[in-house]
Write a protein that binds this DNA or RNA. Sequence first.
RNA 1: GUCCCCUUCGUCUAGUGGCCUAGGACGUCGCCCUCUCACGGCGAUAACAGGGAUUCGAAUUCCCUAGGGGACGCCA
Length: 456
Amino acid sequence: MDSNIVTRFAPSPTGFLHIGGARTALFNWLLARHFGGKFLLRIEDTDRERSTRKAVDAILDGLLWLGINWDDEPIFQSSRLNYHAELAEKLVKEGKAYRCYCTPDELEAMREEAKNRGLSPKYNGMWRDRDPRDAPSGVKPVIRLKAPLEGETTLRDIVQGEITVSNDQLDDMILVRSDGTPTFMLSVVADDHDMGVTHVIRGDDHLTNTFRHMQIFNAFGWNIPQYGHIPLIHGPDGAKLSKRHGALGINAYRDMGYLPEAVCNCLLRLGWSHGNDEIISRDQAVEWFTADNLGKSASRLDFSKLANLNGHYMRIADNDRLLEELLRIIGDVSEERQRRLMIGMNGLKQRAKTMLELRDIASIYVDDFIPIRIDADSREILHKIFLKLESIQDWSEENLDKKLREFSAEIGISFGKIAQYLRNVLAGKKITPSIFEMLVAFGKNESMSRIKAVLW
RNA sequence: GUCCCCUUCGUCUAGUGGCCUAGGACGUCGCCCUCUCACGGCGAUAACAGGGAUUCGAAUUCCCUAGGGGACGCCA
């Protein structure tokens, strides 16, 4: 492998970019970046019924959000349909493919028969060597590949190792439909060849397709790319990912408050490892990633691990970036409140595992103040605290800390008690960042007026 | 039904014949730190699916069984 490697991600735009697709894209991207090659994008929109522009946008946005960029312009497979059909025609001329006039009913009967005989359900080659002059009139034919009948096909998969399948397991697949449009099998092969793709990492649900793809490559006499089939990601219950659990669009993860670098890191560790390393930056991943350490067994997405990773990336994230992202979630707030958020961000971000949690904790700096009610004893102590605070000029965390601890010793009330009063009065909550941080974030004026509002 | 793949703590994984009385991370549970909550630190918990074979020696190689997954369309 060298800098000439070309990888690709080829989603079909029939829905959003789900977590499995995102991981496939990430692996291909990393492989290309690691070796200084190219990462290309191909939109497989040949199923006109189900493909939508909206889905294309969702996929592109999702990739961009994850920081996965692609080289060259994305290729839309639909624009190459005629060309693909011509290629098939060429194979027919060369005797490597043929027209088949079977009806759906006949095909159904064949599969049924094969099944009854204990074989895998497949086409029986009925028109393979039949004279085209026997063609029934009025039936539009499909074009099928003359696949080898004997021998076996061996795939040297860069993840799964050597896999051999007997050729009699594979039937003469359809290359061109009766309406003249090429099938996925043909289009993928032709496009991968034309795009110069050298390495394909994809889900192992494609494993059996790969043997078919190889036969088509061979029919054309083209070089076959290196394949690496990675296991699918399963839901938390071990079953196939479905809408119920993790099969959400990547945008859903953003909505749940995850940072893209956390999602990437989590995805990267699902099926790939580098010794005992867990937290792996993007640059580090590019440096370390090769197909050698890809795992062969299926894995599940663990949200608590994602959350842990996300907490880490939030803690090391720039405060202004977090503020920007927070404002995106809660909408715009006054300058004064933004100022408080920025001052308090260090304390806020280490208490949140997701942006949503950050939003909740940050509410103390954003929500309108509602004075709590206190009893007479508390009022007396709070009044003393009020007078003390009023006398403090240097409104810094260090000085407030020093002065309030001295004060605690003077009046013989534990510092914990004092902190508890202040916390409750300033924020109206029992769980908050440090009281000094809040005092500074609110500023002396606001802090004093909040205490006043409770006292009187 | 046929073919293919997979199987180490609850989860993600390290491990490529001796360094493994199996390591790390998340989770969980304790303790410490401490103005609450977090963060951080320390510790505990917990796994080689089962059975054969090869070998002086097997989580690591081979075979069988079981369980799980995937593929068998004029979808991609």
